[in-house]
Design a protein around this nucleic acid. Sequence first.
DNA 1: ATAATTTCATAATCTAGGTCAAGTGCTCTT
DNA 2: AAGAGCACTTGACCTAGATTATGAAATTAT
Lengths: 191, 191
Amino acid sequence: MNLLLKNIAKHVTLTEQEEERVLLLTELQTFKAKTILLKEGDICTQSYFVIKGILRSYTRDENAVEHVVNFACAEWWMADMYSYLSQRPGQLFIEVNEDAEVIVLTRENQEKLYSEVPKLERFFRILIENSLIANQRRLINNLTFTAEARYDLFTKKFHSILPYLPQKQIASYIGVTPEFFSRMKARLLKK
Amino acid sequence: MNLLLKNIAKHVTLTEQEEERVLLLTELQTFKAKTILLKEGDICTQSYFVIKGILRSYTRDENAVEHVVNFACAEWWMADMYSYLSQRPGQLFIEVNEDAEVIVLTRENQEKLYSEVPKLERFFRILIENSLIANQRRLINNLTFTAEARYDLFTKKFHSILPYLPQKQIASYIGVTPEFFSRMKARLLKK
DNA sequence: ATAATTTCATAATCTAGGTCAAGTGCTCTT
DNA sequence: AAGAGCACTTGACCTAGATTATGAAATTAT
């Protein structure tokens, strides 16, 4: 359970009482693969800190084609940030890719934590900042790199979970069809 | 000058003394079109709140092709967030598109404001949150929409400054070549 | 004003990546 | 153990968008 506390400790130092509060206001839960934690149109009332397993977020376009937005493995957070922050219906699905153990933090409890442990304002601000930076970088990468280069970056970012990801999901994340991805991989192996 | 204060007031309420501090720690500056405020490799030590005119950020890829990352017009912030937050060399250029009047906030003064006016922690957190949301949405749009649909979204987001933007920059922002963009526009006019 | 530079349009050709379709092996039921 | 469904591959064909090139119009500098 203290993986979350360890993670917080990387950015701010809490007293034992403050750590106590964090433990009390979060909850460890386990989910089987294929469980859907959030659907399009839902309001995202909780965020997930992954201890074990893999989560995945995606949207469906007007042709019902799924587009993977992100994966989260151990020590990553997952939520539909738009919906979570605005408390309005979002467009993301969040699904369990591999049997998972996650720490659940409700929006409500996060607000409580903000007032009871103000240092956490700083912690979450840093999280959001990092998330923003990662997003901007990915946007730039999508604009400037070819599918092959994007795949290369992907393998670096997610190498620890690579063998667990179906390649149609990887294809979707980097923005190509599964057919093209399959061909591309075959081409890369020849080199 | 109080456009910034008005903007802050949308999210947090400051006392007169606090507003005083904000005014003292920021500075109004004017820049001619084509001025380069930040270059690739620089450390971004200040962020800009636009009062008048237009700023633009972009990267150059390995073939020296420019990719527009964003535009900022009145009441928008502009910075290389990666570099600004991490204080490490960034990859963005920031250039003045149209003669501009901007409020400059240095990283240093922002830190001062955080400690002198803690409410601003909240203000800037909200800014970053909104920025993250906008970015994620754009990423999803790029993955799910065609160039034509992306152009449509662009005109909605930037309609107020549309006539001032060279179309090669618009093309770059939505991720197509100027030639293709020109033909696409001609095609759209026929409808 | 005039030269120089930049922007925009149009056309011909090319290619990264998409679509549709068929077939092979998996895994998961039951 | 048999079938139903997925995930992946491969092939033939298609298209959105890139590239290269050329010239006209519009800005900018001299």
